[in-house]
Design a protein around this nucleic acid. Structure first.
Lengths: 112, 112
DNA sequence: TCATTATTAAACTAGTTGGTTAATTAATCA
DNA sequence: TGATTAATTAACCAACTAGTTTAATAATGA
């Protein structure tokens, strides 16, 4: 199970496009801070702070190799997000099913 | 498809426990602002502001009935979150599969 | 009309966020 | 050792967030 505070940290980490872009990059494998910073206009300290936020949320783990501090993705908090959203899935699937019945002209509704 | 800004708004709306609790309540059906505020210690204006944030993210839609402004859940942004997290699913499923092979003593790995 | 109920607006505050530049730490390399 | 490279820390700032209290709006009901 995942606590409220863990979800707070995860959602707020995911709320920034730069941080989401960093995660997309890390999905392809580990990278150093400089490598991660390269595609962005922001300064290195700014990226460093974003990485910290991701780390605090448990989305990124860090190693230590020579003068590099390689970052790696940890998907556990994303699994937690996925199972949180799953609690609403029945609602949008119900909506989808209703749409589907409508489009197919089959009324599987109570009054038939 | 969903833009970056839409995801920003959605994730940051979901980053607050009070707002997530409001959504849980709304999953059971529409409610007025006062009904939504009832379980919390916060003042009514505070809850009103939270609802606005949810509304701005498209997670809540509002009606107008007499002096009530009933809130209803809209799951579209949650679907967007679910499909965003899905792009990482292969990673955690790979991890799960590896764990599974390990526990079952079957080495389906390259060197065999 | 007047009082009540539901909700929002206004004004303010403390704390956080996201960014900057300049300085510092720490490891490698010549 | 000294220079270079990688990354963080410090100090600062503007904008935003989450909350408050008090006041206003708007519809209902006596």
């Amino acid at each position: 199970m995942i606590g409220d505070e863990q979800l707070d940290a995860t959602f707020s980490a995911l709320a920034h496009p730069t941080r989401r872009a960093i995660l997309v990059r890390l999905a392809q494998g580990s990278a150093t801070v400089n490598e991660l910073a390269e595609p962005f206009d922001a300064t290195l300290p700014a990226i460093s702070k974003h990485i910290r936020v991701l780390e605090a949320a448990g989305l990124v783990t860090r190693g230590k190799e020579a003068q590099f501090r390689p970052c790696a993705l940890d998907t556990k908090p994303l699994e937690a997000v996925a199972s949180w959203t799953d609690q609403y899935r029945f609602i949008w699937e119900a909506r989808f099913d209703a749409m589907d019945r409508l489009l197919n002209g089959m009324k599987g509704t109570p009054n038939e």
